[in-house]
Amino acid sequence: MDIDLPIPKQRLSKNSIKAMLISELIGNAIWLPILAILFYVDARFDWWDWVGWVLWVVLGLTILSMIYSLTIQPYLLYKNFRYEVDEEFLQIKQGVFIEKYELVPMTKIQSVATNQGPVQRRYQLYGLSVETMSSTHTIPMLSKEIAMQLRNTIAYYAKIKEVDE
């Protein structure tokens, strides 16, 4: 259809799928024991009835989200994340269910930074966060080379300011 928006060209690093899987695994590995302890404490100290119900609901939701986040979610996130940087705009399109398309003029960018968590370090990946007057836009999981290059490009274009600021 010709009434669709043009899709930004760049994608995240391929490794991001693996990295997202690992961090989901770690997250679940931390959360499940906590939940188990809560179940144990609930049984041991005879908490109110409704606490047990809430815990079962939480467990159900956790299992559902685990099934989703450990199978197709990382792939879908990767597939649906696109960005593009030129001398005038930063464009980001993201979202698996709700599609969000942002268009940020380079001149309105106030700062740009790279960051790296432990899982990202394992795969040599960097996240890029771009700050504007209204919010922070993040491009997670780029390869080192591209992240540094992109940071410098954005920093270069963002130096140019408009007259009325």
Binding site: L5, G95, F97, I98, E99, K100, Y101, E102, L103, V104, P105, K108, T132, M133, S134, S135, E162, D164
Partner: peptide, 27 residues
Amino acid sequence: DKVIEIEMNRGPLEKLLGIAKITTINR
């Protein structure tokens, strides 16, 4: 030139109906 950012959103329902939400951000 006074709009500092724009955003366009749509979910599955909006996609089906061929509509979208647009947002302008101003200082």
